[in-house]
Simulated assay, not measured.
Amino acid sequence: MAPDLAERGVVQALAYVATAALVRSGASLEPFPPVATGWRVQALHARPYARLNLYLGEAVQHLLRDPATPPDPDALARTEAAEAAAGYPMDQVLWQPGLAVVGLISADGVTAS
């Protein structure tokens, strides 16, 4: 993945986490794989991620799902609606099905090309 897309993925992941902290309905939200990867990079850095959750006032758990399982279209639609309601613009390039996320995370959790 190109460095600019990786950076945009992290920005979108921040917006996703902020939105997830606002939504307390119990309905699951789910990002598309590129945004989920940016979220995973954040969660791997436990202290900064914990501080982000404290700032947001809500702990947003990162629960992995089986990568072979396709994204839940209802959860994706809820996520899009929740992000729009929260005022976060969605990067349509990163929120499209089928965008490959090859080589985005290295073994130490740092964004790689």
Rank of each mutant, 00 (worst) to 15 (best):
G57C: 01
S113Y: 09
E58W: 05
T79E: 10
V101N: 14
G109F: 02
H45T: 11
Q12E: 14
I105S: 04
S113P: 08
M1W: 12
V110H: 06
V110M: 04
A59F: 15
E30H: 02
A27G: 08
V102S: 10
A50C: 01
D108A: 06
D72E: 09
P34F: 05
D4H: 08
M90F: 04
H45D: 15
A6Y: 01
V102L: 09
P33A: 06
L99R: 15
V11A: 12
W95E: 05
P89R: 11
Y55C: 04
A77Q: 11
P97D: 15
A85V: 05
A112Q: 14
L44W: 03
T19L: 05
L63C: 07
L99V: 15
Q12C: 03
I105N: 06
L29T: 01
A13F: 02
P31E: 10
V23F: 00
G98C: 05
P33I: 03
L104S: 06
L64C: 10
S25G: 09
E80H: 04
I105H: 07
P71Y: 05
L52E: 03
T111S: 09
Q96H: 06
A6H: 03
S28P: 03
Q61K: 15
L94H: 06
V60T: 01
A43D: 10
W95M: 12
Y55S: 09
H45L: 11
E7D: 13
Y55M: 09
P34Y: 04
D4S: 11
L52N: 07
R24L: 03
P97H: 14
A85E: 11
E58K: 14
F32A: 10
V101E: 12
A86V: 12
A36L: 05
T79L: 07
A6Q: 11
L44T: 02
L14W: 01
A2Q: 08
